[in-house]
Computed example of a mutant assay.
Amino acid sequence: MSSFIANASNQNTGNSQATIANNGFFPDINIAAMRDRMRIDSTITTPRLVDAATQAIIHVNQQLSTFKASKVELGFSKLSDVPSETIADESVLTSHYLRAVYSIAKADLIERYKDYDTTASSLDDKKMIEFLSTGPDECRRNAQWAISDLVGRNRSTVELI
């Protein structure tokens, strides 16, 4: 059984250097990088972001448990060891994994903040409105697409008419 360890130096700012240690196979999650990539400012406190990211890691890791087992059986001890194309000095597989985790975490945060009062006019409220402009369904779709891309499964979108 693996454990997740959140180590945050300043838990109330967006500049925190929090890192969530993953299970050894999948990469650790850097909270500052997540904030940058997903446009999450300090309106969302670091403890809330760490909680959402931890839950997202658990969810994505469960979805990828068969994938992980097959790669470990082939002798790969980390996702970054699995042969993959590299773009911008990052493994494509690692990029897909991070996108899945970040997207699930953001979907969770959006759902938790959906009752936020968007009628006020302060700068923080404008930032929150921008944050909430992405729907949680879009984030979950992006996560599922990233997982599908990671395992080499075709994407599919089904819509009931």
Rank of each mutant, 00 (worst) to 15 (best):
A18D: 06
A53C: 11
V151S: 03
Q17D: 15
D51L: 13
S2Q: 11
F131V: 00
D125A: 09
P83W: 04
S121A: 13
D149S: 08
E111P: 04
C139N: 09
V101I: 06
V72N: 07
A146G: 06
A32R: 12
Y116D: 08
S2Y: 14
T45V: 13
S133V: 02
A56M: 02
P27G: 09
S148F: 09
R140S: 00
F4H: 15
T86P: 01
V60K: 05
V50F: 01
I110Y: 03
I20Q: 04
D41Q: 09
I147N: 00
L109S: 02
A107Q: 03
I104D: 01
T94M: 11
I104C: 04
V72M: 11
C139Y: 06
L98F: 14
L160H: 08
V101D: 02
G24T: 02
N61I: 01
I104F: 03
V72C: 07
Q63L: 10
S80E: 09
E159T: 09
E85K: 12
L150N: 06
S133P: 01
L74S: 12
D28Q: 07
L123D: 13
R140M: 07
S103C: 13
G14L: 05
A53E: 02
S2F: 15
K78I: 01
D149E: 12
A88D: 14
K78Q: 11
Q144M: 09
L79R: 05
N154V: 05
N10H: 11
M1N: 08
Q63W: 08
S122A: 14
D81K: 11
T45K: 13
E138A: 08
A53W: 00
L98V: 03
T45Q: 13
A105E: 01
L123E: 15
F25Y: 10
I147M: 04
I40P: 00
L98D: 10
L64A: 05
I31S: 10
V60C: 03
K78P: 00
D117R: 07
A146N: 04
Y102E: 15
A120R: 13
R155V: 05
D137P: 00
E111S: 14
Q55C: 06
A18S: 09
G75M: 03
S77C: 05
S148G: 05
G24P: 00
R140I: 08
C139S: 05
S2G: 13
I110H: 06
